[in-house]
């Protein structure tokens, strides 16, 4: 089973994201966006498309905007097909920003929500508690995770009607317990209606080892770090 880890100029979490999928038994292949644009149908030989964190094209204009524009016409239809066939799409941090701006997430219209400057207008690296809500294909309501965020544009914004609809239809996948960036309704992650496309600002691939946890020297080494659990559940959903 293969995962395609998409990279473009400025992607910088591709190695650890690939490693995370390898750790849970998948074959991870890092592919440059130029390869995918030249042959979008290659996506059908994968079970997972992951768009990792980083600063694709320098976040020029707005975070994720330029890569989303590139993917929209030829890659997005192939991505939808991957999901219809039971695959998964995962966007982490910059990948979430890209998914939102392609319209794949939450997927109601061309673009329904956006991710913009943190309320503090500062980049922030910090560990956050997350609670699962909604109907993600591989997360269970009530489950919690502890991951770091590291972003300047992670505040989720949409109009009230859209936010109501996302909540009603179970598309709010993750919420911050202690909102770090001013996201409306503390939203940290979203799915599409199928629950098979997940985007989130926090970085699960940065909590694959027990020593990644910021207080492991106080609380000891965990047998099952939250990131490992996250990726194990993801791979189970495509097996």
């Amino acid at each position: 089973m293969k995962a395609l880890i998409l990279r473009a100029a400025g992607t910088n979490c591709d190695l650890e994201t690939a490693h995370a999928f390898e750790r849970v038994g998948m074959t991870a292949e890092r592919r440059h966006v130029n390869e995918l644009l030249a042959e979008p149908t290659m996506l059908q030989s994968y079970r997972v498309l992951a768009i990792p964190g980083g600063f694709s094209y320098g976040d020029d204009v707005a975070a994720g905007r330029v890569l989303a524009t590139e993917l929209r016409e030829r890659v997005v239809p192939q991505a939808r097909k991957l999901v219809e066939d039971g695959g998964l799409i995962l966007g982490i941090c910059n990948g979430f920003q890209v998914l939102v701006k392609t319209g794949l997430l939450p997927g109601l219209t061309e673009q329904d929500v956006t991710l913009t400057h943190n309320a503090s207008h500062r980049y922030i690296d910090k560990w956050v508690e997350l609670e699962v809500d909604g109907k993600c294909a591989f997360l269970t309501k009530g489950e919690s995770f502890y991951f770091p965020i590291a972003h300047a544009e992670g505040k989720l914004v949409a109009d009230e009607a859209t936010l109501d609809r996302l909540e009603r239809d179970g598309m709010v996948a993750l919420r911050y317990r202690d909102n770090p960036n001013g996201s409306l309704r503390s939203i940290a992650g979203l799915t599409d209606a199928t629950g098979r496309i997940l985007g989130l600002m926090p970085h699960p691939e940065r909590h694959m080892e027990p020593w990644h946890h910021p207080t492991w020297t106080r609380d000891g080494l965990s047998d099952l770090p939250d990131g490992l659990r996250f990726f194990q559940q993801a791979v189970a959903a495509v097996s």
């Binding site: 490693h19 964190g53 980049y123 690296d125 770091p148 940065r206 080892e209 990644h212």
Partner: peptide, 9 residues
């Protein structure tokens, strides 16, 4: 906190 001190995992 303005620096990403955890990228590369």
């Amino acid at each position: 906190r303005q620096y990403d001190h955890e990228v590369q995992a």
